[in-house]
Amino acid sequence: MSQKKAMLIDLTLCVGCNACQGACKEENRLPPNEEKYLSLTAYTALSKYNDLYIRRMCQHCEVPTCVSVCPVGALSKLEAGPVAYDGEKCIGCRYCLQACPFHVPKYEWSSTKPRIQKCKFCASRLAKGLQPACAEACPTGATMFGDRDELLVEAARRINAEPAKFVPRIYGKDDVGGTSMFYISPVPFEQLGFDSRLGKTPMPMLTMSALSKVPNVLSVGGVMLGGIWWITNRRSEVQAHEAALKKGEAYQREDNP
C-alpha cells in the first residue's frame, strides 16, 4: 500500500507571493490571471487576514463529506490521499457543493454540460511520484508536501520548538475526522476564517446514524405492517361472521313466530 500523502502549510512562512496559484493554473491549464477566491479557474487562492496569508483549497478530507453524499460515486477518495472527481458519472445534483464543510467545490453554472471543479491534489503527478505543482513552486517552504504521518510529526515538532510562535493546534489533524492539508498558525484559527464549529467527528457520521436504520425500518416495519394487516383482517372477518350469525338468528325468529 502506498503511503498516504499530505501537505503542511505553515502560515508563518507564507509571504503571499501567489506562486502556488500560478503553478496550479499552469499545471491545470487554467487562465493565468490572479484570483482572490476559489473559483472554477482557481483551485487554490490566498486570503489575507491582517498580515497573514491563508491558502485555501480542497482539504482532501480523510472521510470526505463530498464523497459520502455523492449519489453516484462521482467523487472518490484515492489511496494516496486525493479526492478525485469523475465528470462522466456526475449527475449534477450539487449535493457536494451543499455539503462540503469548507465550501470547496465550484460548479460550471454557465455550461449546459456542467461539471464540478476543485483542487485535484495533483493526483496524476502524485501517481508519477512527483509532488503537487503548488508545493514545488512554493519558494519559502510554506507549503510542504510529504507522507501524512511524517508531516504530522514535523508540524508538532515546529510547534514544540517555538511554542511562543504558534498556537498549539494543527488544523486538519483531526478536524472533521482529519484532512490531508495541515495548517499551523501564529494566531487562533477562528480569527482566520476557519470554521471552528465543525468538530472532530467526520460529517458523514451524521448521515450514517439515519441511513443505518434503513434495513431495520424495512425488516421490522415489514413484519409489523404484515402483522397489523393480519390482526385487523382477522377482526373484520370475525365481525362479518358474527353479523352473519345474527342475521341468521333473526331469520330463524321470523320463521318461527
Binding site: V69, P71, G73, K89, I91
Partner: peptide, 12 residues
C-alpha cells in the same frame, strides 16, 4: 446514473 452507480452512504 444512481440506478447503476450506487453509493450506499448517500442519502440522495
Amino acid at each position: 446514473h444512481p440506478l447503476v452507480m450506487w453509493n450506499p452512504h448517500s442519502v440522495m
